[in-house]
Design a protein around this nucleic acid. Structure first.
Lengths: 261, 261
DNA sequence: AAGTGGTCTAGACCACTTT
DNA sequence: AAGTGGTCTAGACCACTTC
């Protein structure tokens, strides 16, 4: 009844709570606002990757809306892969340390058989000034400090991908070759565990090009071998870009798998 | 009250209607069954692409469930792009003759500027016996009759894609070069309008290869030019494959765009 | 037994479109 | 004004997990 008990940092404003369904033109639907508040909690680290968020009924009383409204908010976040529901257990913050997720962000499949986890060999990990093209993609200033990682991914011992990864230097202080080599599992898992940066979406531009001299060396092919050139920009909450990747993929024994629907 | 008035062909069975929520272990949730019944109506052509399906309240009374249950069924079909909701108007069967849809199935973007509609030039349209690899993908017998279409797609006058398309001969009787040339818009629009075959999903395998002599000629490049090789299998209702496409894409001025989430 | 998400209902009201 | 989908509520019961 009283305004804003403020026993938590996710209180609904009076204007929001008091407004009935669709009362004022400038207000979005209640469940969208609830969704925004939950997303804010995720972004601010109130609930960390892998942790359980409060139950639907808890959130409903906290936000002073019905359980059905919270449910619809969680439904959308869940369909956007930010949350994962588990019947009987609770709702959890999505994490990159699950086989299901890795499959979504590494879509190279062998011509025959099932996908296996690649080995990653770090070739380089250095700090440098941002080249202007990368800076633009990361919405950074040219000259800002970036981390540049270069690595080779091998499947069953066969080097298949050479990729360069640029990260904002401010977010990834203390990232070294050793840290990268110690961590087993996908790099995005390391990013969210150790650096609190959660990748939630990415755009890719895919082209066919010749390998070129350098990739040819690392991948042990001729420099005119056709390879997939995949440029990826990854985003965290709020559509903020946090990573640029440029990879060259051999596709004699593998293919990039995509589903259209 | 009485059983099965059968004034329509989408009646709920007694077993289904009589069973309360989650009554029997072998029964799936009510809304899933409703979804199945609606899908059946779509598949059997009760409502054709572009047409409006009955309102939620109509369907609710027809199936003897609450409006909310119908709503949840339609929600899922809508998120699978089989139906399109339009507030105030109704719910419509999705069609391939919409810009939004075409974008989903032709993901080539220019390096600069916005996507434009390509011109399609049919190079060949013939009936032939199914090669064994294509037959396998189409779940047909090797030796069955297929339609083979070969065409070049050009953007702003520049030939960019050479593709081969195989279709089951039985479904596409009377498909000729003239018909293909007459029809403006995406080929999938023609398929659903004239041949009653609605494509709803596709799997793609993407590789980088050399153009080869033939593609080099049609696309006016050297035969060792790297191109994207995109092999696509398209499916209609019930996961039945209805098309195999194999395209070679030039990617000097374009890229294949993909979103990971 | 208690707590969680999952399903289903019935009714109210809103926003948009067409008549 | 009438019809459509969109939102919100309150309550019931089910299925799954844990204690």
């Amino acid at each position: 009844m009283a305004a804003n008990p403020s026993e938590n940092n996710l209180n609904v404003t009076d204007g929001l709570a008091a407004s009935g369904p669709g009362s004022s033109p400038q207000f979005s639907p209640l469940y969208q606002q609830i969704k925004g508040l939950i997303m804010q909690g995720l972004e601010q680290g109130e609930w960390k990757p892998g942790e359980m968020i409060p139950s639907e009924t808890d959130l409903a009383t906290r936000f002073k809306v019905s359980q059905g409204t919270v449910r619809k908010a969680i439904d959308e976040l869940s369909s956007e892969n930010l949350l994962v529901r588990r019947q009987g257990k609770g709702t959890f913050v999505a994490t990159h340390d699950e086989a299901r997720v890795q499959f979504r962000f590494l879509r190279l499949m062998p011509n025959e058989g099932a996908q296996t986890a690649p080995e990653s060999k770090i070739v380089e990990c250095n700090r440098m000034r941002a080249p202007s093209d990368i800076a633009r993609l990361l919405e950074a200033k040219p000259g800002d400090t970036l981390v540049l990682i270069r690595r080779v991914l091998s499947f069953a011992g066969k080097p298949t991908i050479l990729e360069e990864i640029w990260l904002p230097g401010t977010l990834f202080k203390g990232l070294t070759t050793e840290r990268l080599n110690e961590y087993k599992g996908p790099m995005y898992g390391l990013f969210e565990m150790e650096f609190g940066t959660k990748m939630i979406r990415a755009d890719e531009m895919i082209r066919a090009v010749s390998a070129g001299d350098e990739a040819a060396q690392y991948l042990a092919v001729n420099s005119n071998e056709p390879v997939l050139l995949i440029e990826r920009v990854s985003f965290t909450y709020g559509e903020r870009p946090v990573e640029v990747r440029r990879g060259r993929y051999l596709t004699r024994d593998f293919y990039y798998s995509n589903q259209l629907s």
